[in-house]
Amino acid sequence: MSPRRRPAAALIAALLALPAAGCAAGGPTGGANGTTTNGTAGSERVTAAAALLGHFEENGVTVTVALHDWHDGAGTLELSFAPVEAGFHLYATDLPPDGVDGVGRPTTARTDGALGTTAPLAVTAPVRRLALEGVTGTVPVYPDGPVTATLPVRASGTGSAAVHIGYAACSETDGCLLPVADHPVPLTITPTGPTAAPVTATGSGPAPTATPR
């Protein structure tokens, strides 16, 4: 089902500044009813060599987190971002945290707990720059459709950890979805590497969108 959209052009910056529903409370959210699933759900989006760590859908984007090449306490997280509807793009990782003139939010991922990062989040997709009415300069975005990002990580011990993911999806013709800020994917760091923490939570469901961008 397509998310609802709001026609008021003046609301785009204010709406993009809002945290996604359910994330502000600190619990995992997403999906049609704000559900995060860790385990085998969505494994078709991950290569056979990867270990699936988490999968959720929130605000028009399906996100999969997988682990590659774990050895000597380090490896690489692969994050797949797939807009549910055609014609939607994600913003580049180097977009300022508050966007350009309040428009857009960068694609982000950070870790906490017993898992740290050894390099910034990287996306190999080409960046194109959109010139938008009412926005100073241009806004860096990825091509429409799915993108894959990598995040090198290293364990600092064993115990609880999480990957916190942020993004916003927009269409040049159909509007912008509300951003997702720091959506947590809980993990457990074991002596043999990260595993999915068995957590399922319910949030508030899909959010409306702002104006076309």
Rank of each mutant, 00 (worst) to 15 (best):
G157Q: 10
T107E: 05
P106W: 00
C23Q: 15
L132W: 10
G75E: 06
V61D: 01
T200A: 14
L77S: 02
T93I: 13
A86C: 00
R213E: 14
D182C: 00
A168M: 08
P198G: 08
P198K: 05
G113I: 03
G26Y: 06
T200D: 08
T211A: 15
A48Y: 01
A207R: 04
R154D: 04
T107R: 03
T76G: 00
G205A: 09
R154Q: 14
G159P: 00
V46H: 02
L53Y: 07
V141N: 03
A161E: 02
A122K: 13
L95G: 03
D94K: 05
T173L: 12
P120V: 07
S160H: 09
T173V: 13
V139G: 02
S43A: 15
L67N: 03
V100I: 14
G54A: 13
V63H: 01
W70I: 03
A181V: 15
T202P: 00
L121Y: 05
P19F: 06
G75N: 06
G60P: 03
H55E: 09
S80E: 06
G193E: 00
A25H: 06
P7F: 07
D69K: 09
E57V: 13
G104P: 01
L178D: 01
A13V: 04
G54P: 02
P19Q: 09
A149S: 11
S43V: 11
R129M: 11
P7V: 10
F81M: 07
P194Q: 06
T36Q: 10
P97E: 14
A20N: 09
T124D: 15
C176V: 08
A86E: 13
A201F: 04
P7N: 10
F88Y: 15
S2L: 14
T202S: 12
G31W: 02
L18Y: 04
T202C: 08
A201E: 14
E85W: 04
L53N: 03
G116R: 03
G113R: 00
H183K: 12
R110Y: 04
A109M: 05
T64M: 01
P212W: 01
A74K: 11
V141H: 02
P206A: 15
S80Y: 00
F56V: 06
P96W: 09
R4E: 12
P152H: 11
G159K: 08
H164R: 14
A86L: 08
G60C: 06
V100Q: 12
A10F: 12
T76L: 08
A168W: 01
M1Y: 07
P126I: 04
A74L: 01
G87N: 11
L79R: 03
S80W: 01
I12F: 01
T62Q: 14
D101C: 10
S171N: 09
A32V: 13
L115T: 01
A17T: 07
V139C: 08
L132M: 11
N59T: 10
E58A: 15
P198E: 11
A119P: 04
A109C: 12
H183P: 04
H89F: 15
A82T: 15
P208G: 08
V103Y: 07
T188R: 09
R110N: 10
T200W: 07
L187M: 07
L16S: 14
M1P: 09
A210C: 10
V139S: 04
R6Q: 13
A169E: 06
C23Y: 02
T40L: 15
G205I: 05
V135Y: 03
